[in-house]
């Protein structure tokens, strides 16, 4: 093993909190500043990110057995059953809290902001993300196999989007679908991060688009944009922007 640069001992907890997006704005800026000049802390942060990526697999969670669910429902039924005739219990799928939260957030958005004036481009992508979380239309082709996803786009769009699986980086590929942005069909790749969803919109570079990468926020969603090989990429998610940037880095590296 080669010498690894040593992180600053007094910064270690702050680095973890930074990775967890738990720092306040001032400290975040201070840490970012410090990371630029300290190789040791950069290495430490990378290790933290790698560990988080390992743990971000949804399969580490356990799904409660059906029998347990039944017996708990039976426990509550006699008390609450008197109040109501119809019970929703059997219908409600037991989704993770994150998914419910994302759905609630997106629905709340629709209800709270019904008349957004003339939605801009990033709004169009956020809308796409929200639509995808609402109905059964998260993916048209559901597979973690990029060799299935890539040919699926053939004939549906006029360009070939790069498809990579980022499972090892903690962003497993869920599938792909077609969406419509500015009246054009665009390819969307769907990735997962823990309980969050990332929609990656890929389309040919519009003629007047800036070649520079950038990020923005809309209605609680983070958007990261970059371009490569004549294509424009928009990643949309409710993930923290630091994690979305991490996703971009991994995608760029793998699709090269």
């Amino acid at each position: 093993m080669t010498d690894t640069p040593i992180p600053c001992a007094d910064k270690l907890l702050a680095l973890h909190a930074f990775a967890d997006s738990e720092l306040d704005a001032l400290t975040t800026v201070a840490i970012e500043e410090h990371l630029r000049t300290c190789a040791g802390c950069r290495a430490a942060l990378e290790k933290i990110e790698a560990t988080r990526a390992l743990l971000s697999r949804t399969s580490l969670r356990h799904q409660a057995p059906g029998a347990l669910r039944e017996s708990i429902l039976a426990e509550v039924a006699p008390r609450a059953g008197q109040n109501r005739k119809s019970r929703r219990a059997g219908v409600a799928p037991w989704l993770g809290g994150g998914v419910i939260g994302a759905l609630a957030a997106s629905l709340a958005l629709l209800l709270a902001v019904p008349d957004m004036a003339e939605p801009g481009l990033s709004d169009a992508f956020v809308d796409g993300q929200i639509r995808s979380l609402q109905g059964a239309h998260l993916v048209d082709v559901e597979t973690s196999d990029r060799h299935t996803v890539k040919p699926w786009f053939n004939g549906r769009i006029t360009y070939a989007p790069p498809v990579v699986d980022l499972r090892d980086a903690g962003f497993p590929l869920v599938g792909g679908r077609l969406d419509v942005v500015e009246r054009e069909n665009v390819a969307v790749l769907v990735y997962r991060r823990r309980l969050h969803c990332i929609n990656l919109f890929i389309r040919p570079m519009p003629r007047l688009a800036s070649p520079f990468a950038g990020e923005t926020h809309r209605a609680g969603y983070n958007l990261v944009r970059w371009s490569s090989g004549g294509l424009e990429f928009w990643a949309v998610s409710d993930l923290a922007s630091s994690e979305l940037q991490e996703f971009r880095r991994n995608f760029e590296r793998e699709s090269r």
Binding site: R61, L68, R87, A89, A92, A108
Partner: peptide, 30 residues
């Protein structure tokens, strides 16, 4: 929806099941 969570207490008394479903059951897997 998130903003429907907080309800006046008297109403909650009448909707036991609702409250349980909303509050606790979604976290069974967790």
């Amino acid at each position: 929806l998130a903003f429907s969570r907080r309800r006046p207490a008297r109403e909650e008394a009448g909707h036991d099941e609702d409250r349980v479903h909303r509050l606790i059951l979604p976290h069974l897997d967790a």
